[in-house]
């Protein structure tokens, strides 16, 4: 089966300082495949480049070498509808629950703007909103509130709802629960598991907790000294 998203021999070098003199190789030749319905775990120490791998696969950053393939095609070569297709199919969920929603937009507006982006006719908005809130297990009374007025776990679920509206096929989860309490982490992770069963999503789950991996991932990779090591 063709992987939905594949990073092929991806390397990243960071240059810093005046004249870009200091070069630091973060990782080299990493190959990772994401399929629908499967969770690939990515572990590693802090600073080992997990987030960079995630961002490269989500297309938020360019690799220094290698390429990222979407359904077998280099994402740099995608245009027009195909590119939109890629954008839609690959979505990212970020680490900090407080930061992943604009504090000055009400929850409702945050959701509606995505519906606007998708050109959903306005009369369907209400239905779609309720639908997606139900999917992530939130009540509609949250809609009038602002991100500062809901808890970390709820923030993370709203961020998830926004992403799910696009009907992605793979999601890149960058430590989605490491800033949350264990009880909230259990909520969010079991929701993710459920969504995977229901919608056949593929995940790249970045986390540093081995226990989380044991529960969530079908396949785990460890990023060590810039190389990817498989660990069951």
């Amino acid at each position: 089966m063709l992987a939905v998203l594949k990073a092929e021999n991806v390397s990243k070098v960071r240059e810093s300082g005046i004249f870009r003199k200091t070069r630091r190789e973060i990782f080299q030749n990493i190959t990772l495949e994401l399929e629908e319905g499967k969770t690939v775990g990515l572990m590693g120490d802090s600073g080992s480049g997990k987030t960079t791998v995630a961002r490269i696969m989500a297309g938020l950053e360019k690799p220094s070498a290698g390429r990222v393939l979407f359904q077998g095609r280099d994402i740099d070569s995608l245009h027009g509808k195909e590119f939109w297709d890629y954008k839609r199919s690959v979505q990212m969920v970020f680490q900090d629950p407080e930061g992943s929603l604009n504090p000055r937009k009400s929850i409702e507006r945050s959701i509606n703007e995505v519906l606007g982006l998708l050109r959903v006719p306005k009369r369907e908005w209400q239905e779609r909103t309720l639908d997606i809130l139900h999917t992530v297990g939130l009540s509609e009374e949250l809609l009038c509130r602002y991100p500062g007025q809901v808890s970390g776990g709820q923030n993370q679920r709203i961020a998830l709802a926004r992403v799910l509206l696009l009907e992605p096929r793979v999601m890149i989860l960058d430590e989605p629960t490491s800033a949350l309490d264990v009880s909230v982490q259990a909520h969010v992770l079991s929701l993710l598991r459920e969504l995977q069963k229901k919608l056949g999503l593929g995940y790249l789950l970045v986390s540093h907790q081995p226990e989380v991996m044991r529960n969530m991932a079908h396949e785990v990779f460890v990023l060590k000294n810039g190389c990817l090591v498989e660990s069951g």
Partner: peptide
């Protein structure tokens, strides 16, 4: 650098939309 700007980018919003509704108000 806040993740809501990044997430808006990865959701596919235009630069104008992000500047006016996400960056400017903050």
């Amino acid at each position: 650098e806040m993740s809501y700007v990044e997430s808006a980018t990865s959701l596919g919003f235009s630069h104008a939309h992000i500047i006016f509704t996400d960056v400017l108000p903050n």
